[in-house]
Design a binder for these strands. Structure first.
Length: 311
DNA sequence: AAATGCGACAACCGCTTCACT
DNA sequence: CAGTGAAGCGGTTGTCGCATT
């Protein structure tokens, strides 16, 4: 009573800033074993020198196995724009319509791309208005500008031509399964695949041919923990490693080697894809020759990788 | 080649909401 | 019903890498 809100964590000794690979693995391993029913207690129990909030954020925004990742498709962007018109800055509500996307991700793409695009569009329109060449509406029912139409038409393999944002209604309204619909529409090249561009920092969709992007099996309900544990009882699992005793990846290297080699012998298993993907995302792919998708994610060789981790 | 600017995105902070007692 | 703690949410900042000068 009267004590006010307790800080979410003890600030002293709590690490801030970017997460290291070892921290990621600790977090993944802990959640695999114990779940995340109590974020506040998680750091202490897992041996992480992080605030519970920070752990939650890292998990939700980056480590969760069902994240879609990759650039937003023009379809998704249009859907975001429309939903933003309806919901405002309710990022979590918007994100809930895009399984595999996070509120943070959508917020970022709005602030960095879509807001500017709309602004440019509006100023373009107002200048046209001043020339009396266009009617005055700024409603979302207005036709898409030419560049937007162009983007949509070129990015989608469907034969649909979008002439107004309202045409996207079915995509947005079909909230029962919006993303699979979008993925199927856009990447009918392989209906079971989502296309993930792991290392794309310039987010320029139009400049990326499909061949330059990397495909992994698209499985929104994928249970990563089943994958990591697998069936092969003789192999080493990430969950077998006692991460509480690990501070640097140098110490982890033998375990990861073992794991990687064992998994390589079982790469007929579809689970392998996700494991490889995760390892690469974490920068753990230091045995590239064993991976059927060894180009995913990591640009680093093993020596470089493990040297760079120590802090 | 170095300096600077800019865009993208991960992460933090503080407030709100929710669930429990 | 009020108080409390924890999770969730949204705004903002910090950092990194690339492009430009």
């Amino acid at each position: 009573m009267g004590k006010g809100r307790r800080p979410c964590c003890d600030k002293a000794g709590v690490k801030k800033g970017p997460w290291s690979q070892a921290e990621d693995i600790k977090l993944i391993s802990f959640i695999q074993k114990h779940g995340h029913s109590n974020w506040r207690a998680l750091p202490k129990l897992s041996g992480l020198a992080r605030c519970g909030k920070s752990c939650r954020l890292r998990w939700v925004n980056y480590l969760r196995p069902d994240l879609k990742r990759g650039n937003f498709t023009p379809h998704e962007e249009e859907a975001i724009i429309k939903l933003h018109q309806e919901l405002g800055n309710k990022w979590s509500k918007i994100a809930s319509k895009f399984p595999g996307r996070t509120d943070n991700e959508i917020k970022n793409v709005w602030n960095t791309h879509l807001k500017k695009r709309l602004k440019a569009k509006e100023s373009k329109q107002s200048s046209m208005e001043s020339c009396n060449t266009l009617s005055t509406t700024t409603s979302i029912d207005e036709p898409l500008d030419e560049s937007m139409k162009d983007t949509l038409e070129h990015s989608s393999s469907s034969s649909t031509t979008y002439t107004s944002i309202e045409d996207l209604g079915p995509i947005i309204d079909d909230l029962g399964d919006p993303v699979s619909t979008i993925v199927e529409n856009i990447y009918e090249k392989d209906e079971t695949s989502a296309i993930i561009d792991n290392n794309n920092n310039n987010n320029n969709n139009e400049n990326n041919s499909l061949d330059e992007l990397i495909e992994i099996p698209f499985e929104p309900n994928l249970d990563i923990w089943d994958l990591l544990d697998g069936d092969n009882s003789n192999s080493t699992h990430l969950s077998d490693v006692n991460f509480n005793e690990v501070d640097t990846l140098d110490e982890l290297a033998p375990e990861i080697d073992n794991l990687t080699n064992n998994q390589a012998n079982n790469n007929n298993d579809g689970n392998w894809w996700w494991l490889v993907y995760l390892e690469n995302e974490l920068g753990l792919n230091h045995n590239e020759s064993t991976s059927p998708q060894s180009t995913i994610g990591s640009n680093h060789g093993s020596d470089q990788l493990f040297k760079g981790v120590e802090s």
